[in-house]
Structure formats: structure tokens, C-alpha cells
């Protein structure tokens, strides 16, 4: 019985994650708007602090200033943050 519960929970999580990933790929703007909406909802002042923190974490990152935004990750041409740790100064040896 407990294994059934465990496997159902795992499958439910994986399917939910996959559905979100697919929606993000096929409808990036709509999902970003939805994400923003839910993030704002969770950040309402009336809600407890930990829920507001979830809301802040849910806030979607700004889209890169360029690139096709298709999210296909095929061509390696996207201007995503493929940079090294920017806080570490360059040092000459």
C-alpha cells in the first residue's frame, strides 16, 4: 500500500514537471505571464512570510535581451547567461 502511494506521488510529480516544461516550451509568453500572476498572488501581504518567499522564488527571470527565445537549445546561439562567475575579477597570471 505504501509503495503504491510512493509510486503514484513520484509519477504525479514527474508528470506535473513535464507538463510545465512543455507549456514553457510551446507557450513561453503565456506561461511567463501565468507565473508572474501566481508569484504576485503568493506575495500578498496578508499571506504568511514563507508563502511570500515562495512567491518571490516563483517570480520568472527576465528573458534574455536577444535570441530567438524559442528555447529549443539546439543552435547555441541564444544570449543566455553562459558567462563565467561574473563576480570574480579576471586575474592575469
Amino acid at each position: 500500500m505504501s509503495y503504491d502511494l510512493f509510486q503514484n506521488a513520484v509519477i504525479a510529480l514527474v508528470v506535473a514537471y513535464s507538463a510545465v516544461q512543455l507549456l514553457r516550451k510551446l507557450m513561453p509568453q503565456t506561461t511567463s505571464k501565468l507565473q508572474k500572476f501566481f508569484a504576485a498572488l503568493l506575495q500578498l501581504r496578508q499571506l504568511p512570510g514563507f508563502v511570500q518567499r515562495w512567491g518571490r522564488a516563483l517570480q520568472p527571470a527576465a528573458l534574455p535581451p536577444s535570441a530567438c527565445d524559442s528555447g529549443c537549445s539546439t543552435c547555441n546561439m541564444c544570449a543566455t547567461g553562459t558567462v563565467t562567475d561574473q563576480a570574480v575579477p579576471i586575474r592575469f597570471i
Binding site: P64, P65, S66, A79, Q86, A87, P89, I90, R91
Partner: peptide
């Protein structure tokens, strides 16, 4: 064919 942006921190700490 489009602009790309990146950042680095110079040895003096300048962004």
C-alpha cells in the same frame, strides 16, 4: 546576427 550581452569584472573590481 543579433546583439549578445555579457559581463566581466576587471582586476580592479570594475564591472
Amino acid at each position: 546576427v543579433e546583439r549578445k550581452e555579457g559581463e566581466f569584472t576587471a582586476p580592479s573590481g570594475r564591472k
